[in-house]
């Protein structure tokens, strides 16, 4: 008994005891569902009865016009959020860290607050702001410019203004803070020597800030790619449920939820999930190659 105890307390065994919960969790709640997800995507599942159907689901998927709409919507949303949520927060962070801005702490605290609200609450607030009622916020704004009120959430481009503003509202502050912490890690003497060389503000930004903040930029891009592709609840809340007019708010995960949970067609839904994973991996690898992350590791 004491021998076992001694072994358990030895420096050789202790690390394995420490990491044991992770290994268990990895096997039970990650590897198992991942593998069974792959298997299920080749099966038809009806109330526990599983039949192997091979690539049937995948073949059907590429002809499924709802799925194609969902993929296009998700990819479009991801690109638009990248366009909006990388440059703007970066510029705000540079401005925030410049000597020009006063009372920095106050703005940082306020700008983070939207991220504290849940999707349910923020989604409800935006739904109400973009309501088709004459008196809603956005229709009041239109009335101010002598325009007739419109049903914001019923046409794609006006609805997507709401969707993208919701995203910007919640995450601009967070992304800005990521960039702020990246900027803080840059050695100030580099800017001083740039000053001595007579560099303009733009040159300093282009040749000092941008290259040195790259790790942060890559991090923010990576999380934005995943968050954008996997977006679901924002659309779920904005349209009060998983269906939007003409599927303008249908996303990949929304479709996975619809087939898997609402229609109980788990096999097909798992195939949807696998396609999502492949898309996410491809975009991330392209992004990492384009930004030269792999090169850095080689040298």
């Amino acid at each position: 008994m004491s021998k076992v105890k001694k072994l358990l307390f030895s420096q050789k065994v202790a690390p394995f005891v420490f990491v044991l919960p992770f290994v268990l969790s990895l096997l039970i709640f990650w590897a198992y569902p991942l593998i069974s997800g792959v298997i299920m995507s080749f099966q038809d599942i009806n109330f526990g009865n599983r039949t192997f159907v091979g690539l049937d689901h995948y073949q059907k998927l590429f002809k499924d016009k709802f799925f194609i709409t969902a993929v296009l919507n998700s990819v479009e949303y991801m690109f638009l959020t990248l366009v909006l949520m990388i440059p703007i927060p970066l510029l705000l962070a540079v401005l925030m860290e410049s000597r020009l801005t006063k009372a920095k702490g106050v703005w940082k605290v306020i700008m983070y607050i939207p991220a504290l609200t849940s999707v349910v609450i923020s989604g409800m607030l935006f739904r109400m702001m973009f309501s088709e009622a004459d008196g809603s916020q956005m229709n009041q704004l239109l009335a101010f410019f002598n325009q007739a009120p419109i049903a914001w959430l019923k046409t794609k481009w006006t609805a997507w203004i709401a969707l993208l503003l919701l995203c910007m509202w919640r995450w601009t502050g967070v992304n800005m803070l990521y960039f702020v912490s990246g900027l803080k890690a840059i050695d100030t003497s580099l800017y001083e020597s740039a000053d001595i060389d007579g560099a303009t503000a733009w040159q300093k930004f282009r040749y000092v800030t941008l290259p040195l903040i790259k790790p942060t930029t890559i991090y923010v891009i990576t999380i934005s790619v995943y968050a954008g592709l996997a977006m679901f609840l924002e659309s779920f809340m904005l349209w009060n449920g998983n269906s939007s007019p003409k599927n303008i708010g249908l996303t990949i995960v929304g479709y996975l939820y619809k087939r898997g949970i609402e229609k109980n067609d788990l096999g097909y839904a798992c195939a949807v999930g696998m396609v999502l994973m492949v898309i996410a991996l491809i975009i991330n690898i392209v992004q990492l190659v384009a930004t030269g992350t792999f090169k850095k590791e080689e040298s």
Partner: peptide, 11 residues
């Protein structure tokens, strides 16, 4: 690197 939404149904 694996979005939770993919594991959601098997899980």
């Amino acid at each position: 690197c694996v979005p939770f939404e993919i594991l959601m149904l098997p899980l």
